[in-house]
């Protein structure tokens, strides 16, 4: 039998190991989420990230080495963004009668998300690079990464902020909407998609089918609007 360190040094540099680790960590995270009855705080991405972070730290592996394997999963973010046309098309008939509320809520929700995050970040003394990283945090991950990169932010940190935003939105949306006495499922879902992208959309789908459909629309439209709004808003601060 060959020495384990010899095999390890071969495997650790091979993309297969880290691609495999990424999928297994996600499967474990998804299982944990299901075991907790899909409680919003048990987020599969959060669990997978913690597991992989711990594994990288324990094995002394650099992020660059890890990413050589994980890049194959990461690459699919682009095609997944294009595929967001599917929920948009599926809901096209519900879209037309609600067109005016959708446009108004999109503009108001998206602008509030970007401007209030930048205003608070600016007041708290965050650096310009960190503000650029923060600006697109309500957009869905693949889009937010592209925006952040274009603005001179840090795409990898943006990904983390996007995921945190999604988890925050998914946790607060139900108590918040009940407190505000907003009962229109279209309004609740749409605002969730705009403010908290895919993770918020997943939550909306659990609560009500119409909320889920409108969350998908909100996420797709906000992805487009944020890419126009974020560079403009960043210019103000």
């Amino acid at each position: 039998m060959r020495d384990f360190t010899e095999i390890w040094s071969y495997l650790a540099g091979d993309p297969l190991l880290w691609l495999c680790a990424t999928l297994v960590a996600y499967v474990l995270g998804d299982a944990a989420s299901r075991a907790m009855g899909r409680a919003p705080w048990m987020n599969p991405v959060l669990v997978a990230t913690l597991l992989l972070g711990l594994l990288l730290w324990l094995t002394g592996t650099s992020y660059a080495t890890y990413f050589e394997g994980a890049q194959f999963v990461h690459f699919l973010l682009g095609p997944a963004t294009v595929a967001l046309a599917v929920p948009l098309w599926t809901q096209r008939h519900a879209l037309r009668p609600a067109l005016l509320p959708i446009i108004a809520a999109l503009l108001a929700g998206s602008a509030t998300a970007v401007l209030s995050a930048l205003a608070i970040g600016h007041a708290m003394g965050l650096s310009p690079q960190l503000l650029a990283t923060l600006a697109p945090k309500s957009a869905t991950a693949p889009v937010a990464l592209g925006i952040s990169e274009g603005l001179g932010g840090s795409p990898t940190l943006t990904a983390v902020l996007v995921i945190l935003t999604g988890i925050i939105g998914a946790i607060v949306v139900t108590p918040l909407m009940n407190a505000l006495r907003i009962r229109d499922w279209r309004a609740r879902g749409f605002a969730t998609g705009v403010a908290a992208h895919g993770i918020g959309t997943a939550r909306a789908l659990q609560v009500h089918p119409q909320a889920g459909a409108f969350a998908g629309i909100g996420m797709a439209l906000n992805a487009m609007l944020t890419s126009l709004l974020a560079p403009w808003a960043l210019g103000i601060f």
């Binding site: 999928l23 997978a48 990413f67 999963v73 991950a141 990898t156 983390v160 995921i163």
Partner: peptide, 8 residues
């Protein structure tokens, strides 16, 4: 959500 993991 799986696709977020490498970046996260």
């Amino acid at each position: 959500s799986l696709l977020f993991v490498p970046a996260a």
